[in-house]
């Protein structure tokens, strides 16, 4: 079994933390994991992504080959299209519908969303709205992690356990909000 995920977004959106939830949960379930990250200059508001590779056998390349990703999980709609070459034609794309408007030539949002929806397996989620419903706009990442949990080869309970673990020190309330966001994403 091999399962490649590209997580994309804009520097500062927390792409790495969502990636870490999936990666750590996969490891807990005994899978081998490689996670290639972007540090440095691009993190300043530029396009960022991680290549996350899960497998039950040895993983060689840190980079995902063209056409081999099973999932693109994007924190931002424009960014969801940047790595389509890497998505298997049967693969799933999940993206937040909330744009990060830090560039002048951002395409028309409605057209962009409509184009994403023409892709064969695409799910567009208003992550911010669901996060607010869960109790905090900052939990948008967890909404997306929840949506991804329907596809990644990991038990949702394992991911929930990890979410509990990372937010524990911030108190029960924060844990609850993030778990709720996770569930709203999972059921979106």
């Amino acid at each position: 079994m091999k399962y490649d995920v590209i997580l994309s977004g804009v520097g500062g959106q927390g792409v790495l933390s969502v990636s870490a939830i999936i990666a750590s949960s996969a490891m807990e379930e005994g899978l081998q994991v490689k996670q290639s990250e972007v540090h440095g200059m691009s993190q300043r508001g530029g396009a960022v992504y991680t290549n996350l590779r899960l497998s039950d056998s040895a993983i060689y390349s840190d980079l995902i080959p063209v056409g081999s990703a099973s999932l693109i999980l994007s924190m931002e709609p424009l960014e969801s299209l940047r790595y389509l070459d890497y998505l298997n034609p049967q693969g799933q794309l999940i993206t937040s519908s909330n744009p990060e408007l830090n560039i002048d030539d951002y395409p028309d949002l409605d057209t962009l969303i409509a184009k994403i929806q023409t892709l064969p397996h695409a799910q567009v989620i208003d992550a911010r709205k669901l996060a607010l419903e869960a109790g905090s706009g900052r939990a948008a990442n967890m909404v997306l992690a929840g949506a991804a949990s329907n596809y990644v080869p990991i038990k949702p309970e394992t991911m929930e356990g990890y979410i509990r673990k990372i937010f524990q020190r911030k108190g029960d309330k924060v844990v609850e909000i993030n778990l709720k966001a996770f569930h709203l994403g999972r059921n979106a």
Binding site: G45, L84, D85
Partner: peptide, 13 residues
Amino acid sequence: TGSSHPDIQLSNR
């Protein structure tokens, strides 16, 4: 080969 791109200009970021 991977997935095909919808026809929309991908602005650089």
